[in-house]
Amino acid sequence: MVEAGGTLPVWLTLLSVKSSELANQRELAGMIGIQGATLTHHLNAMEAQGLLTRQRDPLNRRVHLVRLTEAGEALFETLRQAALVFDKRLRTGLPDERLAEFARVLAVLRENVES
C-alpha cells in the first residue's frame, strides 16, 4: 500500500499531519522540508490510498487542510512502532551522556550551516 515515493516520505507526511492537527499543505511542506509540488504528489497518492483527506479551509478557500483517516491513523501507528524499534536498536550500547554530547555536536554543526 505504501508507494508514494517510498516509506520515508509517507512516514514524514503522516508524522507531520499527526503532529499538526489540520495543517495546510504549505505548512506541511515546510515541516517535511520538500517543495509544495512534491508534497502534492505524495498527498495525491496518499489520498487515493485512503490515508488522508484534504478539504478547503472555510476561512481561506485557496488553502487545503489535511487530516488523517482511520487507515492513515493505523498506518501511522504501525510505522511509529517500527521507528521505535529501530531507534532502540540504533542506540544500543550508547550511554545517554554520549548521545547527549552527539546531539550537542549536531546542534553546533546545524548552527554553522544555517549562519
Rank of each mutant, 00 (worst) to 15 (best):
G50I: 05
F76S: 01
G50V: 03
Q81P: 00
N60S: 11
E73L: 11
T53K: 11
G50W: 04
V66L: 05
A48S: 15
E73V: 04
H42Y: 15
N60Q: 11
L84I: 01
L65V: 05
E73G: 09
T69D: 12
A45Y: 05
N44I: 03
L79H: 03
P58H: 12
V63C: 09
R67T: 13
E47G: 01
R56I: 08
E70A: 11
V85R: 12
N44E: 14
D57S: 12
L79R: 05
A71M: 08
L59Q: 15
L59M: 13
A45E: 14
L68Q: 09
M46A: 06
H64G: 01
Q55P: 00
A48L: 11
G50A: 06
T53P: 00
L43W: 04
R80T: 10
L59C: 10
Q49L: 13
N60K: 11
V63N: 13
N60P: 01
R62D: 10
L79S: 06
A82P: 02
L84N: 09
T69P: 03
L75R: 10
V66H: 02
T53L: 12
L84R: 09
E47D: 03
L65P: 02
G50R: 06
A74R: 14
L79N: 03
E47Y: 00
R62V: 05
E73A: 11
A45G: 05
L84Q: 13
L75G: 03
H64T: 00
E70V: 06
E73D: 11
Q49C: 07
Q81K: 10
Q49R: 07
R54Y: 07
T53R: 13
A74S: 11
A83I: 00
G72W: 04
V85Q: 11
R54P: 01
L75Y: 02
V63L: 13
L43R: 02
A48N: 14
R80N: 13
L52C: 15
N60R: 13
M46S: 07
E70M: 04
A82G: 04
P58D: 15
H64S: 11
